[in-house]
Computed example of a mutant assay.
Amino acid sequence: MLRINIPAGEEQWDEVNEIFIYPKGQTLQLEHSLVSLSKWESKWCKPFLSKQEKTFEENLDYVKCMTLTQNVDPQVYNYLTSSNIDVINQYIDAPMTATTFREEKKGKSNREQVTAEIIYYWMIALNIPFECQKWHLNRLLTLIRVCDIKNSPPKKMSKREIFKRNSALNAARRKQLNTRG
C-alpha cells in the first residue's frame, strides 16, 4: 500500500457560486492491485496492461481506482503534484518481491492481451486464492509465473547441453579420484 500526501490547493474562484474555494490537502492510501485494474478496465473497456499510451485522464482515473481512502473529494486529484505522480509510477513499477527470473530465449512471443479476466482465469487455473487479488499486481503476476513454471514439465535438454553436463561431471570425477580418465 502506498500513502501519498496531496498538499492543499491554492485559493480559486468558483464562477458558478461566485465564491472563493480553499481546497484542503489530504492523505490517500493507494493499492495497485487486480481489484484496481478490473475497476479501471470496466470503466474504460480496454486493457490496462497494454503497451498503448494512456491519456492523462486515463492515468488520473487509475489513481482514483487505486484509492482505498473513503469519501475523497474528487477535486483532490486535481492537486496531485509531479512528485506525487512520480512516486505513484515508481510504486506501480516496483516488483514487490525478491523473486527474479532467468530470461530464456523463446521462439514465439505470446500476443495475448492480458486483462483482469485473464488474470482471474490464471488464478483459478493455478488454485491461487482470491484474497491475492488485493496484493500488489506485480507480486500477483510473479506468483502466477512461479506457479506456471513449477507446474510445467521439466524442459528437455539438447544434445549439446547433455554433452556439456557429462563432460563437467567426468572432469569432476577425474579430479576427485586423481585419474586421467
Rank of each mutant, 00 (worst) to 15 (best):
L60G: 07
N110S: 14
T69H: 13
A94T: 08
P129G: 09
N89W: 02
L141M: 10
I119R: 02
D73T: 05
E103P: 05
P74A: 10
E117R: 12
T142Q: 00
L126I: 02
D73N: 14
K54G: 01
Y121Q: 15
S83A: 15
R139S: 04
K150Y: 01
S83K: 15
I124M: 04
P153F: 12
P95S: 14
Q70G: 04
K108N: 06
Q113K: 15
K108G: 02
I119T: 04
I144Q: 04
E112C: 10
N110H: 09
T67Y: 06
F130L: 10
C65R: 11
E117A: 12
L80Q: 13
E103L: 11
F56R: 12
L126E: 02
I85V: 15
N59R: 08
K150C: 01
I119P: 00
I88F: 05
K105A: 10
L80F: 12
E104R: 07
L143W: 00
S82G: 10
I149C: 02
D73H: 08
K134L: 00
P129N: 10
T69K: 12
S82D: 14
A125R: 14
D93F: 10
D93N: 15
T81F: 07
I128F: 00
N71T: 03
P74V: 04
Q113L: 15
Y121G: 11
K150W: 00
K108W: 06
Y120E: 13
R145E: 07
Y120M: 12
L141W: 01
R139I: 00
M66D: 01
T55E: 03
Y79Q: 12
Y91D: 12
T69R: 13
D73I: 02
R139E: 02
T115W: 07
C132A: 12
E103F: 09
E57S: 10
D86V: 10
V63H: 01
T142D: 03
S152I: 06
N138Q: 13
I124P: 00
V87S: 13
I85Q: 07
I124L: 08
I85M: 14
V63N: 01
C132Q: 11
Q75E: 10
N78W: 07
Y121V: 07
Q75H: 08
L68R: 14
K64Q: 11
L141P: 00
E131W: 02
N89F: 09
I88Q: 12
I92A: 08
V87N: 03
N78T: 11
W122I: 08
